[in-house]
Design a protein around this nucleic acid. Structure first.
Lengths: 223, 223
DNA sequence: ATACGGGACAAACCTAGGTATAGCTCGTCC
DNA sequence: GGACGAGCTATACCTAGGTTTGTCCCGTAT
């Protein structure tokens, strides 16, 4: 845990969303840029996929507006590449002459929308709004999950054993039996786990382990 | 809880999936029926949307294969109607002359796939397999969630209050303070809650309350 | 060689969780 | 009007959870 010296600010201050545009047609880039700026959005526009990839991934909620026909790497390829690079910025496609299989592939891969030219201003604005909102939520979840994960990684192997058994609902003595330990040892590890994970209650710890994907996923119900 | 006298069988025995076909073209219905039956799937075919709606919703994993152009109610309308009726059987669309906006609408509404004629056998079989698998998972989750929900509904109002505070991580005395009760009262309710909910541990109870959507959703982490 | 962290345990002690038994008030259903 | 369930509490008692202090072993990094 790194403490900041700065006067506490609730969130990243530059919470201003950005729309990334990738289109090889300069006039289209200009038109979209104007449109988005007219509603107060920040914009960065590129003429090709590689140019976008060279730019740093943003740290604020954002989305991509891609023409599906791009020189070299197509919009769909770019979508695939970004997914492989573990970049999950929501994507809106725009196309002049797309077909249904392309649409299906794009949507299956998680695209927010797939618009055909000529594009109605309101349609693309709505799509961008939805995309940014989704990205905001995704980032938010991601941030807490990675905090939890890094805390989990600070646990020793034995502490992880105890964590998984405790959050699965076993009593200290049962955990001890399963691991071949004394109950007191489990208690001590358990305390260390609570501290290291920053959990203020067992309920907290259970939720953290759910977020980490440790075990169940759905409640253990028998009929 | 109803106990069955039958020799324990792990799940519903008629676990045999069903594919529902809705297409106004009889030869298409026949071709699809043959195709699906050739891989051992059960099939029910209909000529129009109302016919499907009159059939009872299935209790086994299933999916729909819809022609998008249907007389009267179109495939997309049917998708909407089913969603409104809270029927979430996965849908695969087949179309001869669809367009991109239709595709987008269908996919946004959760369609599994959207295939264009002529359809390759392998494509539709893959789509059906994926759809049935998704439905199986959805049903599974649904079953446990509705069990938990019905148990939750057997709780008295006060017990629900206590449940939500306990699973949010408060100690008995804190719960008591918030509700203006004596600690002993909370303890007693808590015991009743564990029994009624069928939870064998607090961890269980927390997971159940997550499944019910009571409060957090993501762990309560402060940096 | 020594310092350090992980792992394991014990005694003592305290707090939190949980049950059983019993008793009270209220409102409602028949 | 009496039975019933929800809601609430008390006493008494027991188990589970958790901290502190201190001890020991082991491997490894310096």
């Amino acid at each position: 845990m790194i403490e900041r010296a700065e006067p506490s600010r609730p969130q990243e201050d530059g919470d201003q969303p950005i729309v990334f545009i990738v289109d090889d047609d300069a006039s289209m880039r200009r038109a979209l840029t104007n449109l988005f700026e007219s509603v107060g959005l920040k914009v960065e526009a590129f003429g090709s996929a590689p140019q976008l990839l060279q730019a740093k991934p943003p740290e604020v909620p954002s989305c991509l507006v891609l023409d599906i026909r791009l020189p070299g790497v197509s919009g769909l390829d770019l979508q695939t590449d970004l997914a492989k690079a573990n970049i999950h910025t929501p994507i809106i496609f725009i196309t002049g002459h797309g077909d249904i299989p392309m649409t299906v592939r794009a949507m299956k891969s998680g695209a927010i929308d797939f618009l055909t030219k000529p594009v109605r201003d309101q349609d693309i604005l709505d799509a961008v709004q939805a995309a940014i909102e989704r990205d905001r939520k995704r980032r938010d979840l991601n941030r807490t999950v990675s905090t939890v994960r890094s805390r989990f990684e600070s646990l020793s192997p034995r502490e992880r054993d105890v964590l998984s058994l405790v959050t699965s609902g076993l009593m200290n003595k049962q955990v001890a039996a399963q691991l071949g330990l004394a109950e007191i040892t489990v208690k001590i590890y358990r305390g260390q786990i609570m501290r290291k994970m920053g959990a203020k209650s067992l309920a907290d710890l259970v939720r953290m382990s759910e977020a980490l994907g440790i075990r169940p996923g759905k409640p253990n119900v028998q009929t």
